[in-house]
Design a protein around this nucleic acid. Structure first.
Lengths: 300, 300
DNA sequence: ACTTTCAATAAGAAAAACGTATTAATTCTG
DNA sequence: CAGAATTAATACGTTTTTCTTATTGAAAGT
């Protein structure tokens, strides 16, 4: 079982065509067939259905694909780290973020400070979905993740978490909405509206906040549309698809046709949390974590 | 850069002694020296200090060691996942259910047993309408569906079906009804009542059972209200909207103001059936189907 | 000074990976 | 329906990589 076989497999899984995959890999097709077969024998599992002149991933192949990709990425990261460390730069810190962090004024500022104090260390930001981030921190593709609470229930137990900041939630309305020019509104006034919500996993993130707050205000929100990106969400609200609830900091994103309104009847708050491995052995990562913890507005 | 080199490096880093590491790896010492050197050249970084007849990790070596170990572990995990998935011991099974299955005492019990025997497999239940379920099994969003017979007439022909259990039907009456405190009644006694019925598609499910039985008893039921959820149906009966016919197991749902009464003049039975793809390629799904079939109370 | 220890080097043997040619099976096409 | 085309698998010889044995060289111990 070798990395090369992993790469061959991933390419073949992407192409679903042995000859094309072989070409992309710069080898002949029979060599690829042989390596895939060797891998399958080693695993004791077929990875592809080769029926009817069509190549498809088996269920095992699908499951293996995700892990194989992660393994290849991690190997590349190992290489990069060795190289960077040898050059005297302590390397690079990979940070996962949810989209809405970009509009938080404090966090980018904090990163900038750290960058100035540690010019050798490259900070690399990766915008990803919540669950993907947690998984990636767990298997070391990321060094930390900034996500919005609540956290999903099934967190790996070698991960730790602390709160970075707390933010009020505000309502987002299209400016054509009758309530749009009030100075503040009650959440229950939106009971009959349709909502645009984040596509978060159940029980986690802003998607969960929206549900909880609406239920707290005594109604079940009718969710007409789910989106992955904060920008899309605000645009959809502006286009009249519905209303939504977002963290206050998002209101820095002023789009035409969109109004942000504080809420009267709720303490609705969401928190940004930092997820990291409990026993972090990289000095650079540990230092950044300490830095973030020290400047966080919330006692931990 | 290969996984083998990673393993060689990790062992050498553990032993800090080429000859001993080579012995542990089952190769000769020069082979190890060569591979480590090849790795160092590839990385463009020395991983060991070899001064003074003593082998030590460089800083880069130390950083690389962490990532190399993680990479090896992840590769092993990939292998395990592929193997387990192929053997049907990992993955996820999506099961569609009609609402009333929840009150069946046997089926949840069966699922629980399966969950204990196959801890790697996540069972995910989806409460859906009959037609939606069939469609979803067909296009692989669900792996199987538990629905109430009769089946609709236009089943896709790549789907199979077998009976899980058979249940008597009982009448549901509001406890204010004159007949509510009999020990049993005749269905034809309800000929003049209004009925609350399931919103099933024509010819399928409990909605069809109700029609057939009433016609068998010599009258056409007057259906005043149709509902999607079993809980709503029972509530409506309790609130005096009408009477209905439900599977016996539903009587576990005891709501105030509702009485369940056995029927004298009919053998009214409904069946729970399992719908699945005829040629199931997932080992896990096939195993669960076998399990259900084996424990079903009805010969198939 | 001599031996011992230990990694590096050299060179040939073994194993793995690859390429060319071919086969077998299916699908497309006239 | 026959023949062409597509595509993955197989056979087998070649190249490349990896390994082994033998040897060297340098440092440490006696």
């Amino acid at each position: 079982m070798s990395l090369r076989q992993f790469r061959y497999f991933v390419t073949t899984a992407e192409e679903l065509h042995f000859a094309r995959a072989a070409e992309r890999l710069g080898i002949a097709q029979p060599a690829l067939s042989q390596q895939i077969r060797a891998l399958e024998e080693r695993l004791g599992a077929r990875l592809f259905h080769r029926a009817n002149r069509r190549v498809e991933l088996t269920e095992a192949g699908n499951a293996f694909l995700r892990e194989a990709r992660a393994t290849i990425d991690l190997a590349a990261k190992a290489e990069r780290i060795a190289r960077d460390t040898a050059r005297g730069e302590a390397g690079r810190i990979d940070i996962g973020i949810v989209g809405s962090v970009v509009f938080d004024p404090d966090f980018p500022h904090l990163l900038n400070e750290y960058r100035n104090e540690h010019p050798g260390i490259q900070l690399s930001l990766h915008e990803m979905r919540i669950l993907t981030q947690i998984e990636a921190v767990h298997n070391r593709q990321l060094d930390m993740a900034i996500i919005r609470t609540p956290l999903p229930s099934d967190m790996p137990d070698n991960l730790d978490c602390f709160t970075l900041s707390t933010q009020k939630s505000v309502a987002v309305l299209p400016s054509t909405h009758p309530l749009a020019h009030e100075t503040s509104i009650h959440l229950r006034d939106l009971a009959e509206e349709t909502f645009v919500a984040f596509e978060d996993p159940p029980g986690a993130g802003m998607g969960e906040i929206l549900l909880r707050e609406c239920r707290g205000a005594g109604f079940e929100p009718l969710i007409a549309q789910r989106v992955c990106e904060i920008g899309t969400l605000i645009s959809l609200v502006g286009a009249g698809f519905g209303v939504s609830l977002v963290a206050e900091t998002i209101s820095h994103l002023q789009l035409p046709g969109v109004c942000y309104l504080p809420l009267e009847d709720t303490e609705a708050r969401s928190q940004l949390a930092v997820i990291h491995r409990r026993f972090e052995r990289s000095a650079a990562v540990a230092a950044l974590l300490e830095r973030i913890r020290a400047s966080s507005k919330v006692p931990n």
